[in-house]
């Protein structure tokens, strides 16, 4: 396999809370390879956004901190570089689009101005050229009559349009990594489909690596080549999407796939009850010694409650952290 473009190793993120220290990410390893779309899935609060914020070095300090680990982009550890250098990385080499575009767009500037501003900030050049590029970017993300729409303000646009503007802005400086954190949650499915098509298309054209964060396995299946499944701040399984969907190894992954009623083109009369993952995610301040999924896992053994499972390789590029899997080594 090729060298990873970006490599997260043994990442730990902690937050100080009233109940003590919450370890919201622990022992996380993720590699991004050139030309791929990587999906990250998991329940609310499992650390998906925090992973993204760590890559951008935007974890709020305090109360949070990156306590351990490395995040290497082309070999350079982003956790060690100066804040000045990091500002050069953000929006340039790595950029991010957020769930709710309205909160990250400035209501008092036209969308064209905002994209042009980003271009000027990162690349310099003349205002005129930057505006021209902004219009081209709006065109590239499928906004009709871009020279007119560029003069509009965010509130004059629909949710889908605003998300296109965010994508245009994120891509303006030709990033090598684009992190999309639930980019379509606020949108209708027909509009979501447009945004997904656009992201796939842009990925092919620009070659940027895309990290797609979502809680929808369907979206992962549709978009990504590889997927990381997270639970309570840990990676429980990762591997090629098709492999994970057809042959999940971790009980949590199996549950995550089975608990969703998947749309079928040929529904059967009979409806079997959905897989139930009982209980809820434990508070991050009260994770014990063992596997964080143990309290909800129907397969849990004594060992699971006492000891954190180690990672096993179960197939080509397919890894699982679960005591049910015998640790054979690679």
């Amino acid at each position: 396999m090729a060298e990873p473009l970006l490599e997260i190793k043994d990442l730990r993120v902690e937050f100080d809370t009233r109940d003590g220290v919450a370890t919201v990410i622990d022992g996380l390893d993720i590699s991004l390879y050139p030309g791929e779309i990587l999906g990250i899935v998991g329940e609310s609060g499992c650390g998906k956004s925090m992973t993204a914020l760590s890559i951008m070095r935007l974890v709020p300090v305090p109360p949070g901190r990156i306590a351990k680990g490395t995040i290497r982009l082309d070999g350079e550890d982003l956790l060690q570089v100066s804040e000045k250098r990091m500002r050069g990385v953000r929006g340039n080499a790595i950029s991010m689009i957020f769930q709710e575009p309205m909160t990250s767009l400035n209501p008092v500037f036209s969308v064209g101005d905002q994209i042009a501003e980003t271009i000027l900030l990162h690349e310099g050049g003349s205002k005129r050229a930057a505006w021209q590029r902004a219009v081209e970017m709006l065109d590239a993300v499928g906004i009709p009559v871009p020279e007119v729409r560029a003069r509009e303000y965010p509130h004059q646009m629909s949710g889908g349009m605003r998300q296109r503007v965010m994508i245009a802005m994120a891509l303006a400086c030709q990033p090598r990594v684009l992190i999309a954190d639930e980019p379509t949650t606020a949108l209708d499915v027909t509009v979501q489909a447009q945004i997904f098509d656009l992201l796939k298309d842009l990925q092919k054209k620009t070659g940027a690596v895309i990290v797609l964060i979502t809680h929808d396995m369907g979206a992962i299946a549709e978009m990504a080549q590889r997927v990381v499944v997270m639970y309570a701040g840990r990676k429980v399984e990762d591997g090629p999407v098709d492999e994970i969907l057809t042959n999940p190894k971790h009980p949590y992954t199996t549950g995550l796939i089975g608990c969703v009623p998947h749309l079928s083109a040929d529904p059967s009369e009979e409806r079997v009850p959905l897989t139930d993952i009982p209980g809820v995610v434990p508070p991050m301040t009260r994770l014990g010694q063992g596997c964080p999924f143990a309290p909800r896992c129907s397969e849990a053994m004594d060992k699971c409650r006492l000891e954190m499972p180690t990672q096993s390789v179960v197939g080509e590029d397919h890894r699982v952290s679960c005591w049910l899997i015998e640790n054979d080594g690679p």
Binding site: G218, A221, A265
Partner: peptide
């Protein structure tokens, strides 16, 4: 609407007659 739902089922995903809507 059915075409737009991201699907884990390859049979649905790869249907050639899926349609995409433009606009809002």
């Amino acid at each position: 609407l059915l075409s737009a739902v991201p699907s884990a089922d390859p049979a649905l995903r790869d249907r050639a007659d899926r349609i995409r809507l433009q606009g809002d």
